[in-house]
Design a protein around this nucleic acid. Structure first.
Length: 570
RNA sequence: UGGCCGGUAGUUCAAGUGGUUAGAACGUCGGACUUUGACUCCGGAUGUUGCAGGUUCGAGUCCUGCCCGGCCAGCCA
């Protein structure tokens, strides 16, 4: 089985990235050093996809005794905000990682500009007066070479002057750019004189109004890596074609130390989930969810509120490893990691979601018995608790059937079951309302089975959870289904929002909790026995979220029975 | 349309320099155990390794062609 107790295990033990690092160490290229970085743009909430990159970068640094910094890639003042900087840092720490240092690409703006001047002086960069449209037109296509800009051969002096005036804010936005002079006929489009600087008279959340030009990703990223001493710059597959430019920039600058190298890996996709900032934002803005931390959101904050442990997320990320192929993991796999984790640590409690009254007719009037119940069979040190038992209880509606089908072995007329940690009870009769719905079940009990034991060795086929009616605490419980009905939302080119599941959340009211559950702190996850893992909302003590259900064999049987019923025999 | 990267059970991943019956997990099915139809344990099933050729004693691995998918023509990252 998989080790979920640490974030550094993998199913394969190795992968192409770690292989490369080992080879680099062996060759001595790195001078014995390994350094990675997590470089988010502060323009949104981290989600499960980011978790993969975070885990990868931080765990690789840890495995190789290296360093991993958190670097905010804040080169676009139009979309970035300080608030996201805080959120991202908090979420990384929640996930379980501590950056060796928190740095900002904007800290390097001076150095980056100085290098741009070097490039100009070397005749490798020029100021282009073309607007975006003209530039696009002249870039050519996949099959046709581009056309040189009419401004491509300006003198070094003129370029220097123009760039200085761009920086000084003399020109309107979009009127000029600084471009690398590479090759407008290059087969790699990224190499057709890429833009290094664009004019933006925007307020930057950190540098304020000091700058009127901002570096592009391609100009900032590799050099930031180099400044920090990053050895392995891990990024997602779509930057593959940028690697050539990444290397070009570094090669043409006078850099100390080893040159960082970029390696690409597939980003994480999950079924029934979307990891696009754009789509996540519209979910929030259109009110389709309650916010970035809605328990249905794949954001780290959403998962946290839902009750996903950071440890399980780390184990999952480690397990899936890295690949060069874009794929989609089944969300069930993530859920299985969540179950595995909670199974070991979550306290067992009893809660009835859809209550049905059960009266024990031969129970002594008014008698209350305090029963001992095991807190966690997987962890004896978790001890026991007292649960009050009386003659009037609530059981789950699903646990009683008047006319049970085959393989249903819970309660039905004449049948005996165990009430967990309580007594064996036998159904003697039931009451219905005028519409025929069962409103109450009557039982007799066997006093010798106290604690759920069977002194005479007789067996029952089912053990039910229950809550004493007189002691029950009422609450609301939110049940969640998939946020998207499509396994691959938007994959066929449609708007992912078209496949949003209108029933992704069902809030049950009047749920009955055993009394001790009132003491569970907000944010904590317990197991409601036989039902699943549930997280108490950190802000609303009267709300519980179903993190994930238990594996449910009976549900599978029902599914199969329904299927075979709708199909001709044989 | 050109280039780059890929294509291995239902799914996601493994299979040193070509070397026995291509493995694992999740899912699924069956059984054991059980004071959770959970957990745990045991077992079964599912593959023309995208297709077609070629090299070789031997190809998932190397070569060629084709097919399919992803990415690239932002002054986003």
């Amino acid at each position: 089985m998989t080790d979920t107790s640490s974030g550094s295990t993998s199913n394969s033990g190795t992968d192409f990235i770690r292989e490369k690092i080992k080879a680099d160490i062996a060759s001595g290229r790195l001078g014995g050093r390994v350094q990675t970085r997590f470089p988010p743009e502060p323009n949104g909430y981290p989600h499960i996809g980011h978790a993969k990159a975070i885990c990868l970068n931080f765990s690789i640094a840890a495995e190789f005794g290296g360093v991993c910094k958190l670097r905010f890639d804040d080169t676009n003042p139009e979309t970035e905000e300080a608030s996201f900087v805080d959120v991202i840092q908090e979420d990384i720490r929640w996930l379980g990682y501590e950056p060796d240092e928190v740095v900002f690409a904007s800290d390097y703006f001076d150095q980056l500009a100085a290098w741009a001047v070097d490039l100009i002086e070397a005749g490798l960069a020029y100021v282009d007066d073309q607007d975006a449209e003209a530039m696009s037109l002249n870039r050519g296509s996949f099959t046709e070479p581009g056309t040189n800009s009419p401004w491509r051969d300006r003198s070094v002096e003129e370029n220097l002057d123009l760039f200085a005036r761009m920086r000084a804010g003399e020109f309107p936005e979009g009127s000029r750019t600084l471009r690398a002079k590479i090759d407008m006929a290059h087969e790699n489009m990224q190499m057709r004189d890429p833009v290094l600087y664009r004019i933006r008279h925007a307020h930057h959340y950190r540098t304020g109004d000091a700058w009127h030009v901002y570096p592009t990703y391609d100009w900032a990223h590799g050099q930031s890596d180099a400044i920090e001493g990053v050895t392995h710059s891990l990024c997602s597959l779509e930057f593959d074609t940028h690697r050539q430019l990444y290397d070009w920039c570094l090669e043409h600058l006078d850099l100390p130390g080893v040159k960082p190298e970029q390696t690409e890996f597939a980003r994480l996709n999950l079924t029934h989930t979307v990891t696009s900032k754009r789509v996540l934002r519209s979910l929030v803005e259109q009110g389709l969810v309650d916010g970035w931390d809605d328990p249905r959101m794949p954001t780290l904050r959403g998962l946290k509120r839902r009750g996903y442990p950071a440890e399980a997320i780390r184990a999952f990320c480690s397990y899936i490893g890295v690949a060069r192929v874009n794929g989609t993991h089944e969300i069930e796999l993530l859920e299985s990691f969540v179950r595995t984790h909670h199974n070991k640590s979550a306290l067992r409690r009893m809660a009835v979601l859809n209550p049905l009254e059960l009266v024990i007719d031969d129970w002594p009037e008014g008698q209350v018995v305090e029963l001992d119940a095991i807190n966690n069979p997987e962890d004896p040190s978790a001890g026991t608790r007292k649960v009050p038992f009386t003659g009037r209880l609530f059981i789950e509606r699903d646990d009683f059937m008047v006319d049970p089908p085959k393989k249903f072995f819970r309660l039905s007329p004449g049948r005996e079951v165990r009430l967990r940690a309580g007594y064996f009870v036998t159904c003697t009769s039931f009451d219905t309302d005028e519409s025929g719905e069962v409103v109450r079940v009557h039982c007799s009990h066997d006093p010798d089975t106290r604690g759920g034991q069977s002194p005479d060795g007789r067996k029952v086929k089912a053990t039910l959870h229950w809550v004493s009616a007189a002691h029950a605490v009422d609450t609301r419980v939110a049940l969640y289904g998939r946020l998207f009905t499509d396994s691959h939302p938007g994959a066929d080119g449609t708007d992912p929002l078209e496949s949003i599941n209108p029933d992704s959340r069902k809030v049950l009211t009047g749920c009955k909790l055993e009394p001790i559950l009132a003491e569970t702190p907000g944010g904590e996850v317990v197991q409601y026995e036989r039902l699943g893992y549930f997280a108490r909302d950190p802000d609303d003590p009267d709300l519980w979220h179903r993190t994930v259900g238990l594996r449910d064999e009976w549900a599978n049987i029902q599914k199969r029975q329904a299927k075979s019923k709708g199909r001709p025999q044989r």
